[in-house]
Amino acid sequence: GAPPLPPYSAGGREVTMKKGDILTLLNSTNKDWWKVEVNDRQGFVPAAYVKKLDSGTGKELVLALYDYQEK
C-alpha cells in the first residue's frame, strides 16, 4: 500500500494524480510535499508518492507510484 501521508505543510493547493502518471516537477525544496504540474494544473503531491525520472530533456519529471486524491 501507499506510505503514510506526511502532515500537510506545503501551503498551496494539492493536485490529484493516478498511479503511472508522468508529472513535471516544479519544486522539490519541501522534503514532504513536491510541487508538480499535471494537465496544466499546478499543485502539491506527497514526495513519497512519486519517483524522479531521468528525462534527458532538462525538464524534471516524476512518476506517480500511487493514486493521490487532493483533499
Score class of each variant (00 low, 15 high):
5 L>Q: 08
25 L>A: 02
31 K>V: 12
52 K>T: 08
29 T>H: 11
63 L>H: 03
67 D>W: 02
33 W>S: 01
2 A>E: 08
51 K>Q: 14
40 D>A: 07
14 E>Y: 11
62 V>A: 10
65 L>I: 09
64 A>F: 01
25 L>R: 00
71 K>I: 12
66 Y>S: 03
15 V>W: 06
57 T>A: 14
55 S>W: 13
51 K>M: 15
49 Y>P: 01
39 N>K: 10
13 R>E: 12
42 Q>M: 10
25 L>Q: 01
68 Y>I: 03
66 Y>W: 14
30 N>Y: 06
53 L>I: 13
36 V>N: 00
69 Q>V: 13
61 L>K: 10
56 G>C: 06
38 V>I: 15
24 T>R: 12
12 G>Q: 07
15 V>A: 06
11 G>D: 15
54 D>S: 13
37 E>V: 08
39 N>R: 10
54 D>R: 08
54 D>Q: 13
63 L>T: 07
43 G>T: 03
27 N>E: 14
34 W>H: 02
28 S>Y: 08
22 I>L: 09
10 A>S: 14
45 V>K: 01
25 L>T: 01
58 G>N: 12
15 V>L: 15
41 R>L: 14
13 R>T: 11
6 P>F: 03
11 G>P: 15
10 A>M: 14
27 N>I: 08
45 V>N: 00
55 S>Y: 11
36 V>F: 00
7 P>Y: 06
63 L>Y: 08
44 F>M: 07
33 W>R: 01
28 S>V: 07
47 A>L: 01
4 P>Y: 06
15 V>K: 02
45 V>G: 00
56 G>K: 06
25 L>H: 01
64 A>D: 00
64 A>Y: 01
51 K>E: 13
3 P>Y: 05
10 A>E: 08
3 P>R: 05
20 G>H: 04
65 L>Q: 04
7 P>K: 03
22 I>S: 02
27 N>F: 05
25 L>K: 01
20 G>N: 06
40 D>F: 10
68 Y>M: 02
58 G>E: 13
68 Y>T: 02
22 I>N: 02
49 Y>E: 01
35 K>G: 05
9 S>Y: 08
26 L>F: 03
6 P>T: 02
12 G>P: 07
48 A>Q: 13
60 E>G: 08
46 P>E: 00
58 G>I: 12
62 V>E: 00
32 D>G: 08
70 E>S: 12
55 S>I: 13
69 Q>C: 08
54 D>N: 12
46 P>W: 02
57 T>K: 06
52 K>Y: 11
47 A>E: 03
58 G>Y: 07
9 S>E: 10
41 R>C: 06
27 N>T: 07
3 P>M: 06
51 K>A: 13
68 Y>A: 01
10 A>G: 11
20 G>Y: 03
43 G>W: 08
51 K>G: 08
67 D>S: 07
10 A>I: 13
35 K>P: 02
57 T>W: 12
50 V>I: 07
55 S>V: 15
47 A>M: 04
6 P>S: 02
55 S>C: 09
38 V>H: 13
59 K>H: 12
71 K>E: 09
49 Y>R: 03
15 V>Y: 05
1 G>Q: 14
45 V>Y: 00
43 G>F: 07
56 G>V: 13
9 S>V: 09
24 T>G: 07
70 E>P: 15
4 P>N: 09
71 K>Y: 15
68 Y>L: 03
41 R>W: 06
61 L>V: 09
26 L>D: 01
38 V>R: 14
48 A>S: 12
12 G>M: 11
33 W>C: 03
66 Y>E: 04
61 L>N: 05
23 L>F: 10
1 G>K: 10
69 Q>A: 15
4 P>H: 08
1 G>M: 12
37 E>W: 06
7 P>N: 10
12 G>I: 08
46 P>V: 03
